[in-house]
């Protein structure tokens, strides 16, 4: 008879202790995430060229890689001009565009909101692709950091550096036609795929690629985060004979796209590392 209350006391004590242990969570990090600056779209493209062999390399892709994807060959006149240059650099940073030849500044142009508006007007007047969506254009070009450098060298160019916070807006129209940022691509989904997507109730996708890490949202709902390693993709490349080539530039880049099916609202937000 005396042992029964002891058991109950012991049980209660254990439950109490364990309960307290479980409730006591590790102190949560309450420090507010420092408010980040508005994300910039950074594109650094290095181009090397050799007038002797009339070959060029862009963003870490060799002349052979470029030839495989149908990159054009330059005319002799262009090679003559290029052979006179040691290098040229175009920089779009902040509110100015700077152009350098042989490391010497050649000209500088204002690149603020007002000057960009003039450029959009010129594009609207002379290019027959439809009016430039100023809001989208500003989303891309405001706070952009673009550097394109040309170097006369036989070396392979530096890997492409792309870090785009702004989502590339892709739309699939009701007839399956694909457009990117409002411009038609000439590609379209097959009717079967479109029916499947519509029947499954998929309205939009948000895809972010950040140096091999893939975040995907379907209708605003997050799916598991996938991480692809360059070595892993090489295994798949070898297994299936895909001839993907050197993927270093892709694995050093980050970008994202928002895809909308039909007339749904555009996907908002950015892709942040």
């Amino acid at each position: 008879m005396n042992k029964t209350p002891t058991f109950i006391k012991l049980l209660l004590a254990v439950i109490l202790v364990l309960g307290m242990l479980m409730v006591q969570q590790p102190p949560m990090a309450t420090a507010e995430i420092a408010k980040q600056e508005i994300p910039a779209n950074m594109v650094h493209i290095d181009v090397t060229y050799d007038p002797g062999t009339k070959s060029y390399s862009i963003g870490g892709f060799s002349a052979e890689d470029l030839r495989q994807v149908g990159a054009p060959q330059f005319q002799d006149e262009i090679w003559q001009v290029l052979s006179m240059l040691d290098g040229a650099t175009l920089k779009i940073q902040g509110d100015t565009i700077d152009f350098f030849t042989n490391d010497q500044p050649l000209f500088s142009v204002a690149w603020d909101g007002a000057s960009r508006e003039i450029l959009y007007s010129l594009l609207n007047a002379y290019i027959e692709l439809g009016d430039v969506d100023m809001e989208r254009a500003e989303a891309w070009l405001d706070k952009s950091d673009i550097v394109i450098s040309l170097r006369q060298s036989k070396e392979l160019s530096e890997p492409l550096q792309i870090s785009l916070a702004t989502l590339l807006q892709v739309q699939v129209k009701d007839n399956g036609e694909l457009s990117v940022e409002g411009f038609p691509t000439g590609m379209s989904l097959t009717p079967e795929t479109l029916d499947l997507v519509n029947l499954a109730g998929i309205e939009n996708l948000k895809l972010c690629w950040n140096k091999g890490v893939i975040d995907l949202q379907v209708n605003g709902q997050s799916l598991p985060q996938a991480t692809l390693y360059q070595g892993g993709l090489s295994v798949v490349d070898k297994a299936f004979g895909l001839s993907l080539g050197d993927l270093t530039p892709i694995f050093g880049s980050s970008f994202g796209a928002g895809l909308v099916i039909g007339e749904a609202d555009p996907v908002t937000g950015e892709c942040l590392p």
């Binding site: 998929i202 598991p224 985060q225 996938a226 991480t227 390693y229 070595g231 892993g232």
Partner: peptide, 22 residues
């Protein structure tokens, strides 16, 4: 050597099931 990885939570797993089912 890691080739590929997938990180999930019960929520993202449920979202995947939901999408797969649809």
């Amino acid at each position: 050597q890691s080739l590929a990885a997938l990180n999930y939570t019960p929520e993202t797993f449920d979202n995947t099931l939901d999408l797969g089912e649809r």
